[in-house]
């Protein structure tokens, strides 16, 4: 993958979001506001979803440069993470 601009942009957007979002959640938690729990709970889900989506972005970047093998492998990695999480959740 030679062009990583979309991936960089995506990571920067997620980073700005995390910073603002978890700052708000931490302030609300410090003030013992009940929304703090809801926001932090939702925030964890958003972070995990953003990481999974990162693989879709990586796959897109690979496809853009004609690297179909790694575009497919990125999506397989996505499936492996979801499947292994499901296996882990069932066995724990």
């Amino acid at each position: 993958m030679t062009d990583k601009s979309t991936l960089v942009k995506y990571q920067q957007i997620v980073w700005y979001f995390c910073l603002a979002y978890f700052l708000l959640a931490s302030v609300l938690l410090a003030m013992k506001n009940s929304s703090g729990y809801f926001l932090s709970h939702l925030g964890v889900k958003i972070v995990l979803a953003a990481t999974i989506s990162q693989l879709v972005v990586m796959s897109h970047e690979f496809r853009k440069t004609g690297n179909r093998k790694f575009a497919a492998l990125s999506l397989i990695l996505l499936l492996v993470i979801v499947a292994s999480s499901a296996i882990g959740s069932i066995l724990l």
Binding site: C18, L19, F22, L23, A25, S26, L29, G36, Y37, L39, S40, H41, G43, V44, K45, V47, L48, T51, I52, L55, L77, I81, V82, S84, S85, G88, S89, L92
Partner: peptide, 26 residues
């Protein structure tokens, strides 16, 4: 990515406390 796979398992098993995680993530 490896940490995400582990975090998903912990989260859906109720072992991850989001209120403790928020300031650490920040």
């Amino acid at each position: 990515f490896a940490a995400a796979a582990a975090a998903i398992v912990y989260f859906f098993n109720g072992q991850l406390d989001p209120t403790a995680a928020a300031p650490v993530i920040l």
